[in-house]
């Protein structure tokens, strides 16, 4: 839908994955992630196959590997935590390159890393093939409470407006000779943030007025009734359904 709101995670395209209704993709990603986290960490081969499945999805969506890998960077803070585990977790230890590492810690790190990476990669693929606006509509179709959907929609609509306002305030500050340098200036920044909050709050009141004036009674009308066909559901759920037997095999095996 539309030319706008091309958020940075989105990659314009017209692949079979792009065309799937957003709510089927959301359900597929959720299902896939659940399967992945349920898989015992010792089944290393299963995680390799999950990654292969995701690579298959990326290929169908024509999302290049570099695009996904760069966006995996969001995971780094969690990776830092995982890297610490072999050093701090107590238990049986082993020596790698002369460094003593804990075996449960290594398994714990692997667990966080493998499952986290697969989850993030699946989400990156979802975001790359689905417009922000459609994601919100998808959540609405999946039954997310209307209030949360409305909050998310307004965030999309007014994010730019408020960022603009923030930028104008910053220009105004600097035009009067203010440069934030260090702690002594935090007071000014805090006051600006407060002013921005009040402005946004007042805008909220005006927006509400405009909504009420046009017949708003508490719920947003759902405009895009795009029910998914059986084939579309099958297409989307192919990912978690392909992952499920691997998980079961690992659990039983």
């Amino acid at each position: 839908m539309g030319a706008g709101h091309a958020h940075r995670l989105y990659r314009r395209g017209d692949s079979p994955v792009h065309r799937l209704p957003p709510h089927t993709k959301l359900a597929a990603v959720l299902g896939f992630v659940l399967v992945v986290v349920t898989t015992p960490r010792e089944a290393v081969w299963a995680f390799a196959l999950y990654a292969a499945l995701l690579a298959g999805v990326a290929a169908r969506a024509r999302v290049p590997a570099g695009f996904v890998l760069r966006r995996l960077a969001i995971e780094i803070p969690f990776v830092a935590f995982a890297v610490l585990m072999p050093f701090v977790v107590p238990g049986e230890s082993t020596t790698v390159l002369g460094v003593s590492l804990s075996v449960p810690g290594l398994w714990g790190a692997w667990n966080v890393l493998a499952k986290g990476t697969l989850g993030v990669a699946a989400s990156v693929l979802l975001a790359a093939t689905t417009e922000l606006r459609d994601l919100v509509l998808g959540l609405q179709r999946l039954g997310l409470p209307s209030l949360l959907v409305q909050i998310a929609s307004f965030m999309i609509r007014y994010g730019d407006v408020i960022t603009d306002e923030m930028r104008r305030m910053s220009v105004a500050r600097r035009s009067r000779g203010f440069e934030a340098r260090g702690v002594r200036h935090w007071g000014v920044l805090a006051k600006s943030a407060g002013a921005l909050f009040i402005r946004s709050y007042e805008r909220g009141e005006r927006v509400h007025l405009a909504m009420v004036s046009r017949g708003y009674t508490g719920t947003m009308p759902l405009l895009d009734e795009r029910p998914a066909t059986r084939a579309q559901w099958a297409g989307a759920l192919a990912l978690p359904l392909a992952a499920l037997p691997l998980c079961l095999f690992a659990l039983l095996g």
């Binding site: 539309g2 706008g4 407006v161 805008r203 405009a210 046009r214 708003y216 009308p221």
Partner: peptide, 21 residues
């Protein structure tokens, strides 16, 4: 202020808001 009036993510949805309500 049109930014107060236009509260939906796209022009089409915004114009549709009243009639859809």
């Amino acid at each position: 202020d049109p930014d107060d009036q236009l509260f939906m993510p796209t022009v089409r949805e915004d114009v549709a808001f009243g009639p859809a309500a």
